[in-house]
Every structure is written in structure tokens, then in C-alpha cells.
Design a protein around this nucleic acid. Structure first.
Length: 568
RNA sequence: GGGCCUGUAGCCUAGUCUGGAUAAGGCGUCCGCCUUCUAAGCGGAAGAUCGUGGGUUCGAAUCCUGCCAGGCCCA
């Protein structure tokens, strides 16, 4: 059976001068399903034929004969509207979903390797809500890419050196008095972060502390054993803490890089570029790249004293990643504030004629703000990732236990964690990437309406219907109510919605679709009783529809990194 | 000074890439629905000069352009 849109294009093409592909681009979905399933607007033919679009629509609609899955063709004003044969459509879509199961919506493996780098934290403070947006986006994009056939390698870069690290080290050195995360019973990355905040507070009264931190950095670079030992100890605390959070989020990396290993690496690449005449040296001895042809001006790569700047190490790391993975594409997940940085980086890679230069992509997103403004770790005005996860967990736990008794504490915690994470993840994914999120803890996160738990709840209800029911061969022609047909048509959109999300690297398209799908199911659920359907055959047909819905919703939730729960 | 992003009902957003029929969803408000598969749900109502002026087009939330407001980056 043919794709209805292609079939409609063929039929129109026979009666007009337009090619099938031209028509395919013009065909749209009417705003109201009562108007039809597909529509062809006749405005563009109007000039050529010197007739009004209304007359053209009338004329064409009488000439074109319905066939196959297209059951009726009708002119409505300037549009030719196509109606589909619901029985054929239901059969086509539902049997496909039930056959393909968890493959429904996916494409076959294509042998391309994509690497995706995130969330690349600094090791002087715990992960915050901004990192969670980064992780939620990157995790979902990774799943979507895998769904589309790509092999994904997840990598992480720890920014574990630099002045910010020295600040928390210095504060601990002065005021730590041998305390440890264990002795204070604090999660180890939070313990480190507390000293970073302490440093900032003390430095307001004692500006000289900044100089001391600078000295510490010099000592670190000269590999002073005492400084290195402290650095190792505190970095381990930070990294151990991150690891716990990653584990909670089900996050595993194929490879982890450390800035302290790579930060000196770019110098040779720059010098080689200089020798090849790709870069130039100015009067004071600094090495620069001329990127004015890319509208990026001139960029310093090595200072007059020969020390490298921040972007130099990224050149080295790009090379290293290519050696490690021989990727087809390298995706950097980072905030839009770094747009310029990545533009420069990619332009430099191009100037260096790197084979992978065109395959680098900055997957950007706007930051998460608080109602008061930007989150600032050093001032303690942040929403810690662990804290918000705990908070969501507790709220979810209260909600579940209010509805169900006789659940073990263990089960309760398992379910609450899945619901809490669904809420926060969905919240961070549902907006388009270039929209800043103002996070108002009192209002922003809810378990009702367009939320993760709404999706989980729809699945719980559907699963309950299917429990202990046997499916036999359904008669799809019985599914002819408005609600049933609407749900089937929604199910049919799933593959193209994934592809759209993939094309734009934007899970929010899929997130919004999944809400619409669940809304349509809930409408069906209210109007069409399954287990008490008027006849055995109707019940059976509806069971197949519910089965197809749960399959599709599960597939969607997988791509959004939302876990299924057995009860809510 | 230059560049990028954002502006859609009281609030949060989708739709903008690829122009098309009465601008869609959620929160909140109001009215209804639990002796029927879980009410974290469903139905209905009210609520929009699509920031603003101009232009292109048969047709603009969508394309071009001037301006205004907010955010970010570079110098």
C-alpha cells in the first residue's frame, strides 16, 4: 500500500503541469480533520490557468478519481481535499507498529560514528540545573541519533585545572582544618563547592587571596608535589561526586578526557600552522590567525611569551578525539554563550585543513536562569542538580503514597525516582533550544499538564487495560469513531516526528508530539471503553489499538529518557 | 561600536527553517464529569492589535527591512 501523500501527488500530477515532487512540497494537512486528511492549495496554478483557485479546485476535484487508500476527493474553496479510507489506514498503521515493535520509527544502522561531548563540568563545584539541561538534551539527542542508525560515542571533558580550581583548593588549605566529605557527611563534590563559595566570600574582604590563588596555579604548573597532592585529593572528591550523579541519571561515557592532560597540547599544532604559513606572527611575537574572511577578525593563538590561550587546547583535543574515534561527526553540547568560541574553533580547524573540520557541530542551547537572574555558583545562588533531583523525588513519593497503600518503601522510592526524573527531564527538554528557561522552583515543575508524569500516567492507564488480555486477529474496520481514527493518525506521525527532531537536533519536537499523542489517547480512553466495548470484536480491535499506542509511547519515552512506571 | 538569540491570551510555550483555510497546547480562572479500564485524567467557557512601523505577495506569526525591549558574546 502506498504512502497517501505520494499517491495524492501522483493523482494531481496527472491532471496538471506540476511534477510530483513540486506537488509533494505543496501538500499540507488541513487545520481541521473534518476538512480532510490531505490538502492541495490551488493558488499557485491560478496565474498559469488564468482561473480562480476556487474554480481550479472544483475542476480538478471532479477529474481526479479516488483510488487505493484515498477514498474521497472534495473541493473546499481554493483547496482540493483528500479523505483516506480509515479501514485501510488503520490496518496499514496498526499492523506495522505491532510488527515492528520497538523498531517502529527507527532506521537501520548506517555505519556512521558520531561523538557527542557533554556536560564537561568544572571540578570546583557540583553540577547544577544548567548541567541538567545540557545532560537532558544531549542524552535525548544521542538516543534519537541511535534511533536514526548512527553509532554514538558519549564523551566527557573534565575542566580540572585553572584558577577556579585553585580557589577552592586555597580555601580548603586555609580553613579546611583536615575536614573531609566523610567527616562532614557531605556529598564530596558539594564539599569541594562549599570551599569555592567560601573563597569568594573571603576574597571580598581580603582581595590578596586572588594573588595567593595565582601563586598556587604557578606552583601547580611547576608540579609542586604538595600542591599536586591537594589538587588530586580535591579533584577526586569532585569527580566521585559527579559519578554518583551520572549514575543516578543512568549516564555512562565511552571516554572521559581531562583538561590537565591536554591543556599544553595545542602549541605544536599552532607552530606547525605557523610554519605552513596558515597563521602569522605580529611585531610583538604573538601568533595570530586571520579569520576575517569568516567575519571573525584576527584571533590570538600564542601570546608574545609563547604561552597558549584557551582555544589552543581545543585544537589539540579535536585532533585527539579524531584519532580516538575516526568520527563522521563531532557534536559539542554547550551553551549559546559559547557560540563565538566554537565558530572560531571550527574556523581554525578549517584553516588548519583538518579533514574533520566540516564535521564539527556546536549543539547550543540557552541557559537556565532563576527569577533573580543568572545562577552564580560562587555566590551560592544555584540550583544544585542533586538537590532538585532529591526534591522531585520527595514530591513524587508523597504523591504516590497518597494514592496507594501497601507499597514497600523500596518500591515507593523506585517509582518516585522515575517520576521525579521524568518531571525534571521533560521540563528541560520541552522548550526549543534557543529559548532561555527561567526556573521558578515554586511554579515551574508540576506533575500535571504538559509534563513527564502525564506521559507516564497515560502509559500506566493503557497498560492496565492490556493486563491479562489476550489479543487475537483484529477487525480494523470496527475502529471508526472519531477518537479511534484520530489516535491512529497520531500514531502514524511518530516516524516523521523523530526525523524532524533529528534534522533540527531538537528533542522538543518529539516531546511536544508525545504530549499530543498521550492527549489523544486520554480522549480515546474517556470516550471509548475497551474492556466493556459493545461487542467482543470491537473490544478486540480496541485492544490492538491500545497495544499499538503503548508500543509507540514506550518508543517515544525511550528517546526522551523517561522511564516507564508500573503504577502511579 | 560589531555579532548572535529572544519577544505569540494574566503566566509558560508550540507554530517561524519550508508563507496558505477560524493562530495550537499547558498553567491559572469559571462551569461540568469518579456505583463504568487509576480524576497525576476528561469535556466545555472566557481570554491574542502574534513587540512595533514599513515592504514583498492573491495570501505574512512565518520572508525582507527600520525601530523598541530583554539576554548573551566579541572588541
Amino acid at each position: 500500500m502506498e504512502n497517501p501523500k505520494i499517491l495524492a501527488s501522483k493523482l494531481i500530477s496527472k491532471e496538471t503541469k506540476l511534477s510530483e515532487s513540486q506537488i509533494l512540497d505543496l501538500i499540507e494537512i488541513p487545520p481541521d480533520p473534518k476538512l480532510g486528511d490531505l490538502a492541495f492549495p490551488c493558488f499557485s496554478l491560478s496565474k498559469d490557468l488564468k482561473k480562480s483557485p476556487q474554480d481550479i479546485a472544483k475542476d480538478l476535484a471532479s477529474k481526479i478519481k479516488p483510488s487505493d487508500i484515498i477514498s474521497e476527493i472534495r473541493a473546499t474553496g481554493p483547496y482540493i481535499n483528500f479523505f483516506l479510507d480509515n479501514t485501510k489506514l488503520s490496518k496499514q498503521i496498526l499492523s506495522r507498529i505491532l510488527k515492528e515493535k520497538n523498531k517502529y520509527g527507527s532506521l537501520k544502522p548506517n555505519k556512521q560514528i558520531y561523538i557527542i561531548e557533554f556536560p564537561s563540568p568544572n571540578t570546583n563545584k557540583p553540577l547544577h540545573l544548567g548541567h541538567l539541561r545540557n545532560i537532558a538534551l544531549a542524552s535525548s539527542i544521542s538516543k534519537i541519533l541511535e534511533n536514526q542508525g548512527y553509532t554514538i560515542k558519549r564523551i566527557n571533558l573534565n575542566n580540572d585545572r585553572g584558577i577556579h580550581i585553585m580557589k577552592s583548593m586555597l580555601a580548603y588549605d586555609i580553613w579546611g582544618e583536615g575536614r573531609t566529605p566523610n567527616s562532614e557527611k557531605i556529598k564530596s563534590d558539594h564539599f569541594v563547592g562549599d570551599y569555592y563559595v567560601l573563597f569568594s566570600n573571603k576574597a571580598k574582604e581580603t582581595p590578596n587571596l586572588i594573588n595567593q590563588a595565582q601563586d598556587l596555579l604557578l606552583g601547580w604548573e611547576q608540579k609542586d608535589p604538595n600542591i599536586r597532592a591537594l589538587w588530586k585529593k580535591m579533584n577526586k572528591w569532585a569527580l566521585d561526586g559527579f559519578e554518583q550523579t551520572y549514575k543516578r541519571l543512568g549516564l555512562k561515557f565511552d571516554k572521559t578526557y581531562f583538561e590537565s592532560d591536554t591543556y599544553k597540547g595545542g602549541k605544536a599544532i599552532v607552530e606547525q600552522g605557523l610554519n605552513q604559513g596558515l597563521f602569522f606572527k605580529n611585531e610583538d611575537g604573538a601568533v595570530l590567525a586571520d579569520l576575517s574572511h569568516e567575519n571573525l577578525g584576527e584571533k590570538i593563538l600564542l601570546r608574545p611569551d609563547g604561552t597558549s590561550v584557551y582555544i589552543t587546547q581545543d585544537l589539540y583535543l579535536a585532533d585527539l578525539k579524531y584519532k580516538d574515534f575516526k568520527y563522521n561527526k563531532s557534536i559539542y553540547v554547550a551553551g549559546s554563550e559559547q557560540n563565538y568560541h566554537f565558530q572560531v574553533l571550527f574556523a581554525l580547524l578549517k584553516a588548519l585543513q583538518k579533514p574533520y573540520a566540516e564535521d564539527c557541530y556546536h549543539l547550543n542551547f540557552e541557559l537556565v536562569y532563576l527569577p533573580e537572574g543568572k545562577m552564580k555558583s560562587r555566590e551560592g545562588t544555584v540550583v544544585d542538580a542533586d538537590d532538585i533531583l532529591d526534591e522531585m523525588h520527595e514530591i513524587a513519593k508523597m504523591e504516590v503514597s497518597a494514592r496507594h497503600d501497601n507499597i514497600s518503601e523500596k518500591k515507593l522510592d523506585q517509582i518516585a525516582e522515575k517520576i521525579g526524573q521524568a518531571a525534571i527531564r521533560f521540563f528541560l527538554i520541552k522548550y526549543s533550544r534557543n529559548k532561555a528557561i527561567i526556573f521558578n522552583p515554586k511554579e515551574a515543575i508540576s506533575f500535571e499538564g504538559e509534563t513527564g508524569p502525564y506521559l507516564q500516567y497515560a502509559l500506566v492507564r493503557a497498560n492496565k487495560i492490556l493486563a491479562k488480555q489476550k489479543l487475537s486477529k483484529p477487525d480494523y474496520s470496527l475502529l471508526n469513531s472519531e477518537e479511534e481514527i484520530a489516535l491512529i493518525k497520531k500514531l502514524a506521525q511518530f516516524p516523521e516526528k523523530i526525523q524532524e527532531s533529528f534534522k533540527q537536533y531538537s528533542p522538543h519536537i518529539l516531546a511536544n508530539y508525545t504530549i499530543e499523542l498521550s492527549q489523544q489517547f486520554n480522549t480515546f480512553y474517556e470516550k471509548c471503553h475497551v474492556l466493556k466495548a459493545e461487542s467482543k470484536d470491537l473490544k478486540n480491535a480496541r485492544l490492538s489499538l491500545v497495544q499499538a499506542f503503548t508500543q509507540t509511547l514506550k518508543n517515544a519515552l525511550h528517546l526522551l529518557n523517561i522511564e516507564e512506571v508500573e503504577l502511579m
